[in-house]
Design a protein around this nucleic acid. Structure first.
Lengths: 376, 376
DNA sequence: ATGAAAGCGCTAACAT
DNA sequence: ATGTTAGCGCTTTCAT
């Protein structure tokens, strides 16, 4: 079938029997060697490998899958957009999948397509994947989906019925809490939240983390504004909030919305961060270079993907074994110039700490000067 | 193997024989129906489909692949980063692949890993893909790679030996020319170019398009500054160019670099766009909301992917058929507030058209007010 | 228009 | 430790 062609035409692709013949062993021995099974002498192993090398032999995966009932592939259901978060997850998953010796199949969904996850899943199951990863899941309201292979859900509740459902916690809640606390500790009386669409579990997590932090600090909980992840929705929210003079700090559920919000504030004549502080979420590539450079949170995409896939593969290969709870990766808050203490003027009833902006003006802290501070 | 489980336990997954038995036909007839082969009476077809439905039957792809020698899957080699361009290509490819009735397998490469493309390709070929897409190729200097399935290369020269190599032109060159012409037509004496890394074919295309436009207009060709796509590299370039008072217009090979460059200029005290105009490339989600809103170019990711995949699938399924040349999709220049006529002061020897900035100040044209103008 | 038989290239039991 | 024998579940010939 499909393999690298050797120079000088295309002789018929070799089979394992050909390798066996050349090595002077049985076909089964070839299979043993190639699968790293025990009970093969070093000598035969060498001869088989040499013969395989010489012929340019590669195993036929279709035949392997048919005979063994396993495809050694993992499917991922992901949103079909180039949004930074979903795309980063996908890349992290690919690396992790490959590291575990599996290959990756992808099926995308479209935002707003009801049943999209179910049909993407069906497509992957048709292809015979050994396990499935649901990245950035959305609550479609379609109830429980049944799948007969193990499922890894990145940061969401188990709405799947499967041999095993494992979850890798993204820690979005902890990150959101850290962001909110950062602002509270700067002296803001409270922090507004520009949330992501609440059909997304990750958006819910962030909102929950924000709420927890406010409660823990005894701060008022202002009404939540909900966006759709886009900078446009952040801009709209920014115009809305610009009318409210009491707003001094906003935690946006992603950087795009934060940037839209900042733009609206600047147009409304607000100074950033002297009048309003903003924290984003994701640390998109341009976050350090917008004006003002954005304080934001980094998600540990690769670490979580690796962790989750290790679990998934373990469940696939050794069903029934008890799983150790995965350790949460550290929270990374990247402090840049978009956050500062609140303005001294509108001290309503809480005026502790009023030192003016230690972070420099809106043009402070450009390239490379971000301070990745890890908070527990 | 892997399929949706019906409620109430897991009875053995049905085979095509089971369907045949239930429908009262031969197994071959089931196969005929499911493959849309001719010579099946409407009656039998109905009975087979009903039986399949009733049993929840799904074909075993491994068996199909083994028997037919085709996997009905297409592999894509892509850069393992969440950069907007590569991620957008990947999503476009996934949609196109699915639309053609194939499934997608992904193998990523790491920037700077020599031989990365070759090994990613080998992995896909091992998996038995029927065709391969190389997205955003990089010149690895590893010479010609031989592959025995058809290859689609998105916007690059044929450095592959394959049964067939098809190329879908991305049109980056035309886009770059349009960007450069836009600036020249605003009255700038010449346009500087902040290029992408020249190992990337797409970066070369953009540079070539820029150069063509300058030549066509008889403009001087200033030295090229090369970045690495990152905002940091754009910032560095911006500091460099900030020392040169003659620079009035820059075409950056992507938006991230443009944003970094703008930041450096602002820090140097330049006003945008009064002193310097900048055009980016990609129209990333935040492009309309940075300060100033970025004039940029949109690549027709989906259209090109669809077009290219149609070719690839045609080559896979009907080798030897002559291919019609694909029509170039239209160029989309999104004009926002980062471009304006040059400042009147440093008129060196060319002073035609000196109308000052009609686009409004740096805060003009925010949300939604972009003007997608299609230029031929 | 339909069916029977023969593999596809491997892995899995079962010898030895 | 190594080899032999059966399938895995389809798609292909080739009959009918």
């Amino acid at each position: 079938m499909t393999r690298l062609v050797r120079p000088g035409g295309s002789p018929p692709t070799p089979r394992s029997v050909d390798v066996a013949r050349l090595a002077g062993v049985s076909q089964k021995t070839v299979s043993r060697v190639l699968n790293d099974e025990p009970y093969v002498s070093a000598d035969l192993r060498r001869r088989v490998l040499d013969a395989a090398e010489e012929l340019g032999y590669r195993r036929n995966q279709a035949a392997r899958a048919l005979a063994s009932g396993r495809t050694r592939s993992i499917g991922v259901v992901t949103l079909g957009s180039a949004l930074y978060g979903p795309a980063s997850w996908l890349m992290g998953i690919e690396r992790a999948v490959r590291k575990m010796g599996y290959t990756l199949r992808v099926a995308t969904t479209i935002e707003g397509d009801p049943g999209g996850i179910a049909s993407a899943l069906a497509s992957l199951l048709d292809q015979g994947v050994d396990g499935v990863v649901i990245s950035e899941p959305i609550d479609e309201g379609v109830g429980i989906i049944s799948v007969d292979v193990p499922v890894l859900v990145l940061g969401a509740p188990p709405t799947f019925t499967a041999p095993q459902v494992v979850t890798a916690r993204v820690g979005a809640g902890r990150l959101a809490r850290a962001a909110t606390e950062h602002l509270l500790e700067l002296g803001h009386a409270t922090v507004h939240h520009l949330a992501g669409p609440q059909r997304w579990y990750s958006a819910r997590d962030r909102l929950a983390g924000w709420r927890e932090a406010l409660r823990a600090h005894g701060a008022d909980e202002p009404p939540v504004v909900e966006g759709d992840w886009s900078a446009a929705s952040g801009y709209a929210a920014g115009r809305e909030l610009a009318g409210d003079g009491t707003v001094t700090a906003v935690f946006a559920a992603n950087d795009d919305m934060a940037i839209g919000l900042i733009r609206a504030q600047l147009e409304a004549g607000r100074r950033m961060p002297e009048d309003i502080s903003v924290v984003g979420f994701d640390d998109i590539p341009v976050a350090a270079y917008v004006t003002p450079p954005l304080t934001t949170l980094r998600q540990p995409f690769d670490a979580v993907a690796r962790q989750g896939l290790a679990l998934l593969v373990q469940v696939i290969e050794k069903p029934g074994v008890e799983l150790p709870p995965a350790a949460d990766p550290p929270v990374e808050l990247v402090v840049r110039a978009s956050t500062a203490p609140p303005p001294p003027r509108p001290i309503p009833e809480q005026g502790r700490r009023a030192t003016p902006h230690p972070h420099g003006g809106p043009h402070g802290q450009p390239a490379g000067s971000e301070v990745p501070s890890t908070r527990p």
